[in-house]
Design a protein around this nucleic acid. Structure first.
Length: 1012
RNA sequence: GCUCAAGUGGCGGAAUUGGUAGACGCGCUGGAUUCAAAAUCCAGUUUCUUCGGAAGUGUGGGUUCGAUUCCCACCUUGAGUACCA
């Protein structure tokens, strides 16, 4: 019997599917455990070997937990809204739903062949109306909520309205926009309906606001910062402008403090928590109000250093600051306007990139120092950002390097307020070990005391107070795209209204084109038929009907426009982990109360670190919101989180010879150069000794050493023999090369190119007549480790691996490659190691005659091998150190093979240990014992320490900490006895060469160290 | 610039409270088997060596009987973030 992995794997995959082996139950006596992967976006390219890494790790853990007696939920689904399907639709007209469907089918086939223990009965797809119905529902709940600072939680907006009706908004402590006016109950009652809605919008947790965005008119969409390169769009190179647009936003800033505090309660890596902390960017300080001389306006600033307030010698406003145009003097008007104009043309990114250039303009206006009442110059400068704090700073040049540089550059005073510190060269930014001077009531105080006192004094004169500022900004929630969730929103008199819940889902309408409309509206503006109302049977008086241009009510027959934006990718991914908890996929709620109560939150979440500040922050925000409103019982979505590292590809490079002539541009020469273009490829070793010139690697003769000289000679002589009759031209040519990635499938493990394969490959038709400069008779490619990607031609497909070596080999090898969290290069050649291991494992159970396991009593050695393996594997899985348990399995199988072990008592539990990693072979061998049920829920073997007890120890004997020889001694031997034997040993005497040891250290059971 | 992570053979990596550096695998070398190849099996494989040994975990210091592991400084690489007041 041989190990026929293809047959075995297909058999067990079918068995698991037919028997619903991994279907989780929402009722069980066992403790629950929820293992989740970040669900994939089903791209058209399918899976490469890098994708399953995290899924294999989570699958091993899920299977292990089942063996350990847990009721495990291990679901999978698809984040199926997104840009690539939409781009494809724009290019081909193919509906994104169809593309998505096809891609999902491919993903499913590829995932199935790897043997994951997913409960597919709970699959979710974010683009499924049955799913996004609840995304829309959550959006409505956010709209119907505000954030109450007193109870520190979200509450219903109706509670806010009743407070307004009785007290106005002067007493309530709620999160709202900065420009919210104050009003009394009477004033509130007097507001028109539209005015009331405008006010409420400033409190809602999702709201419409003017947001500055990167608008690309040619693409008709908003671009993220990283989609812009050098001021033009990355795709197509179209111009991009800063533009204010009305967009939906999420008031995540209300949750800043709780998102920060919550990090202390979850088991994530420090680096990930640190990213989130930086992103939230909490800073504690004070807000200070400066009066503007000769104006009624005041300027508010935020500072982390109120203790340095007497060091203020000027103020700087962001060029975009609202007050600039009001306070500028006539003399300075021209200069200021020119500066504001110049700044507005530079993107935010340009301004950030160009840190060294100091620029700014004096406004001519003066503020008044809150304490000294001295005049303070007001400048504008682009080092102050409109989007952070209040867009204005009080400049303390002696205590802040940027203020210092600005003051130096424009010749502004730099008063020193630090005792015994020299600020003639640079600012003193440290808070420690210094006392404040020249500062009236703050003199002689340290940072802490002075800060407290300064805030107190500011409060006394009504010009400031302690304040905490967060960098975290509200998240824009609108996209001008087609393939996303439609908003359940229509507009009456310009104010957004929620569509009644009973009409959900608001399904995505069909459109002719997936591009923006001619009037610049998002793609949904092309829709003529919004079919969502067909879901309800009866239409009552205040129900909404759909017409081609919007919605209408049967009451007044008015027609109201619908929201045409769609939601961003992170909408659906911010709550999907709750949907999996629902076992029957009931549609009365997003997940039933019992299901939410039973599964609580995700115990283990595995995914990439690229989501550190996006998905992982938004999900935490939504979960806290849902908790506040009583829809879920947990405060955090993911208790433990592990970031799997990326598997990198090994790209193969070919080198195209480029010839040119520095001086002679005659037709003859140009002709020859044209002839050799795209037709000569040099082997990797010929690329050494080149310098970069004109974006090419150029062979530079003066920098050569003798080894490379040979190459200098080889290239001309190669050309001479392949292009005869051009000797004199060739002698005067310069050479360089251009490298490009060649498909790794055309290269073998010795880096040799398959020449015939290359010449006949349809990708390389332009090189049909290529000539190759060989190295030792073959064409050798260069290698570089890069991200695995189709565009780099370095993708390794798991299908091919499964076919040739099997899924169990793939699973083991992905784990064997290295620590889960680490980035590591893929090298297919190495898979023979784990594949060979599986064959060896098979041979422990089968020989040519058949199943060879016996009832023989296990030997002491057999038991020792088994139990040290149990111990190690259990520890490894608990520590997510999967690579080391693969080694442990190899050692165990090598030892048992050497021991000629055939004992059932050893070989049966061994299978349970291996089963999480290589489930197919484990099931097959398990069934060979006569078991007729799956191995997947068999109890994990119990470690017994008694089998590992030793009577003697091979002591390492060290001299000055260096191990020199070993000595076998009984473990129960006393220290002084050991010392006697060691000192008498001939090798000890040889080491000491007659000297007396200074000291002898003996740690019983561990080591002997002799200090000479 | 700041924050975080990481530097160990030809390669991926191991060494879990400081106690035998290089487990396990790939690759490579030699051998067995074979007409031959694949597959399989056996032996070797950090470097230097006068074959006794000696050095060695990015660099330089330190703590310790003993450091890949702890401390300080520096170098390199990767990731994130950035004029954050």
């Amino acid at each position: 019997m041989t190990y026929n992995f293809n047959e075995i794997e297909a058999k067990w995959q079918k068995y698991w599917s037919d028997n619903q082996t991994f279907k989780a139950s929402n009722t069980s006596d066992k403790p629950k455990y929820y293992v989740l992967d970040m669900f994939p976006y089903p791209s058209g390219a399918g899976l490469h070997v890098g994708h399953p890494l995290g899924y294999i790790a989570s699958d091993i853990y899920a299977r292990y937990k089942r063996h350990k007696g847990f009721n495990v939920l291990h679901p999978q689904g698809y984040d199926s809204f997104g840009l690539p399907a939409e781009q494809y639709a724009i290019q081909t007209g193919q509906h994104p739903a169809l593309t998505t469907e096809t891609n999902i089918a491919t993903y499913r086939r590829q995932l199935d062949q790897i043997g994951f223990s997913f409960d597919w009965s709970r699959e979710v797809r974010t683009s499924d109306p049955k799913y996004y119905r609840w995304t829309q529902w959550i959006f409505i709940q956010l709209f119907e909520s505000y954030y109450c600072k007193d109870s520190d939680m979200a509450r219903s907006i109706s509670e806010l309205v009743s407070v307004f009706e009785t007290e106005g908004n002067t007493t309530i402590n709620a999160v709202c926009d900065d420009d919210t006016p104050s009003f009394t109950a009477e004033e509130w009652k007097a507001f028109s309906d539209v005015e009331k809605q405008e006010i409420l919008l400033k409190y809602r947790l999702t709201y419409l606001a003017e947001t500055e965005v990167n608008w690309c008119p040619a693409l008709g969409t908003v671009l993220a910062n990283d989609e812009i390169v050098n001021g033009v769009s990355e795709r197509g190179g179209h111009p991009v402008v800063r533009k204010k647009m009305t967009q939906w936003s999420m008031r995540i800033s209300a949750y800043a403090e709780r998102l920060l505090q919550g990090l202390d309660t979850i088991d994530w890596t420090d680096s990930l928590k640190e990213s989130q902390r930086n992103w939230i960017g909490k800073s504690v300080g004070a807000s200070v109000t400066f009066k503007v001389k000769g104006h009624d306006e005041v300027i508010d600033v935020f500072t982390t250093r109120p203790d340095t307030i007497f060091g203020v010698s000027f103020m700087t406003l962001a060029p975009e600051h609202d007050l600039v145009s009001q306070i500028v003097t006539d003399e300075q008007k021209e200069a200021v306007e020119a500066y504001v104009e110049a700044t507005s043309k530079r993107s935010e990114r340009d301004r950030m990139a160009d840190v060294k250039t100091i620029s700014g303009v004096f406004t001519g206006a003066y503020a008044e120092h809150p304490f000294t009442k001295e005049p303070v110059q007001i400048w504008i400068g682009d080092y102050v950002l409109a989007s952070y704090g209040t867009g204005a700073v009080m400049a303390v040049p002696c205590g802040d390097q940027r203020d210092y540089d600005f003051a130096k550059h424009f010749g502004i005073d730099i008063p020193n307020i630090f005792e015994g510190v020299d600020v003639s060269e640079e600012a003193f930014a440290s808070k420690d070990n210094v006392k404040i001077a020249n500062s009236d009531f703050l003199n002689g105080m340290n940072y802490k005391k002075a800060t407290k006192r300064a805030i107190y004094e500011l409060e006394q004169i009504g010009q400031g107070q302690g304040k905490t500022n967060y960098r975290l900004r509200d998240a824009v929630f609108s996209r001008q795209r087609y393939w996303g969730e439609p908003f359940p929103v229509y507009y009456v008199n310009g104010m957004p209204q929620m569509i009644n819940e009973k009409h959900l889902p608001i399904t995505l309408p069909e459109v002719e084109k997936y591009l923006p409309t001619e009037t610049g509206e998002p793609p949904l503006g092309n829709a003529t038929d919004w079919a969502w109302c067909t879901n309800t049977n009866s239409v009552v008086s205040n129900d909404l009907l759909v017409s081609s241009s919007g919605v209408e009510t049967s009451q007044d027959n008015g027609v109201y426009p619908l929201e045409l934006n769609t939601m961003p990718g992170w909408a659906g991914s911010s709550w999907y982990f709750f949907r999996y908890m629902e076992d029957a996929m009931r549609n009365e709620t997003f997940a039933s109360e019992e299901a939410l109560k039973y599964w609580e939150n995700v115990d283990l979440y595995i995914g990439g670190s690229e989501h550190a500040t996006g998905h992982l922050l938004y999900s935490r925000f939504w979960v806290k919101f849902l908790k506040d409103r009583g829809f879920v019982g947990v405060d955090e979505p993911f208790k433990k989180l592990i970031n799997q590292g990326m598997i990198l590809g090994t790209s193969a490079f070919m080198y195209k010879l480029i010839c040119w002539h520095g001086a002679d541009n005659s037709d003859e020469v140009l002709n020859f150069i044209e002839q050799t273009k795209d037709s000569v490829f040099m082997s990797e070793s010929f690329t050494k000794g080149y310098n970069v010139e004109k974006n090419l690697e150029v062979l530079s003769k003066d920098k050569l050493n003798s080894e490379i000289d040979l190459h200098v000679l080889t290239i001309p002589s190669f050309l001479k023999s392949n292009f005869p009759g051009n000797d004199s031209i060739i002698d005067n040519l310069k050479f360089g090369f251009q490298k490009f990635q060649v498909d790794v499938n055309l290269v073998n493990s010795s880096d040799e190119l398959d020449i015939n394969g290359f010449l006949n490959h349809q990708l390389y038709q332009e090189y049909k007549n290529a000539k190759f400069i060989f190295e030792e008779g073959v064409y050798k490619v260069g290698r570089e480790v890069e991200k695995m990607s189709k565009s780099k031609y370095n993708v390794v497909n798991p299908d091919a691996i499964c076919e040739q070596y099997g899924a169990d080999s793939l699973r083991l090898y992905e784990m064997f490659l290295g620590p889960l969290e680490q980035y590591k290069p893929w090298n297919t050649a190495g898979i023979t190691g784990v594949h060979g291991f599986l064959k060896k494992l098979w041979k422990l159970y089968y020989n040519d005659q058949g199943f060879k396991v016996t009832d023989a009593e296990p030997t002491k050695d057999n038991l020792k091998t088994l139990h040290k393996t149990i111990k190690k594997v259990e520890e490894d899985i608990e520590n997510f150190s999967f690579n080391t348990s693969v080694s442990t399995f190899m050692i165990a199988v090598n030892e048992l093979t050497a021991q000629k072990c055939t004992s059932k008592e050893i070989l049966e539990p061994l299978l349970v240990l291996i089963s999480p990693y290589a489930p197919h072979i484990a099931e097959e061998l398990w069934s060979a014992f006569g078991h007729d049920t799956s191995i997947s829920t068999v109890d994990f073997p119990v470690f017994e320490a008694s089998h590992l007890v030793e009577s003697s120890k091979e002591y390492p004997v060290s001299f000055n900490g260096k191990m020199r020889f070993k000595l076998e001694l009984p473990l129960d031997m006393a220290k002084d006895e050991i010392e006697k034997i060691v000192m008498a040993h001939e090798k000890t005497q040889a080491q000491l060469q007659g000297r007396e040891p200074k000291k002898v250290i003996i740690v019983p059971g561990k080591i002997i160290n002799i200090v000479g």
